[in-house]
Amino acid sequence: MTMLALSGRVVEASARVYRRTWRGSVISTFFNPILYLLAMGVGLGQLVDDGTGSTTLAIPYLTFLAPGLLAATAMMTGAGDASWPVMAGIKWRKTYDAILATPVGVPELVVGHLSWVGIRLLFVTVVYSGVMTAFGATTIAQGALAIPPALLTGLGFAAIITAYTARLKDEQGLAALFRFAIMPLFLFSGTFFPLSQLPGWIQPAAYATPLFHGVSLCRGLALGTDFAVHPMYSITYLLAMLILGTLLAIRLMGRRLIT
């Protein structure tokens, strides 16, 4: 069998496991973004503007927030799927050892795993994009346009975090990842406010984060407005993160599992 066919078998197995376990993740993947949209977009939005924009934003806050949350949700989903389930496969359940005793090798395992995360991201971003449209933040067509960059963002994170998880001894490293990397990115990558609001000295750092580029692409496409930075930079950045992350993940996973 070819590498692609074997990766497909890994996707199949992941889908089966998901069928048995989706209930546990449905709240975080689907309801949390809706709650954020309600609380921040509608609730906070009415406080900071009267629905017609504010001194710094030319558009209603909800409209500004929604596409940013799409990218952030993709990041969260990608990061979540590349952390605890991967640790379980490596260490807690050792299901990866079982898989590697078959013709499936480490590259097929990693590519299969990431492909499955891609499918999950597709569900999540499609649903979210629908919710965003229902809230009146964008149109159906523009909401759909924002799905590919959100997918790319989620996959980029999934790849790099799979590589990170492959090196971890225990789950403390995962808690640290979410506390010290994912949460700050979530808050300071232009999802909730434009980066121009940040003090000048910290702005370059914020521009360098991957989520900022995901947010820029999603917002520009969903709202049909100018991008915060030229989209070619963002696409290149996120694609590089996905490709290098995947190669790194294959390498580190091999080191971890083939001893």
């Binding site: 069998m1 066919a5 074997l6 078998r9 890994v10 199949e12 197995a13 089966r16 078959t102 499936v104």
Partner: peptide, 12 residues
């Protein structure tokens, strides 16, 4: 059953 099924699938 599913454990056996997915394993067989890894063998193509």
């Amino acid at each position: 059953y599913e454990n056996l099924l997915i394993y067989g699938r890894y063998f193509g």
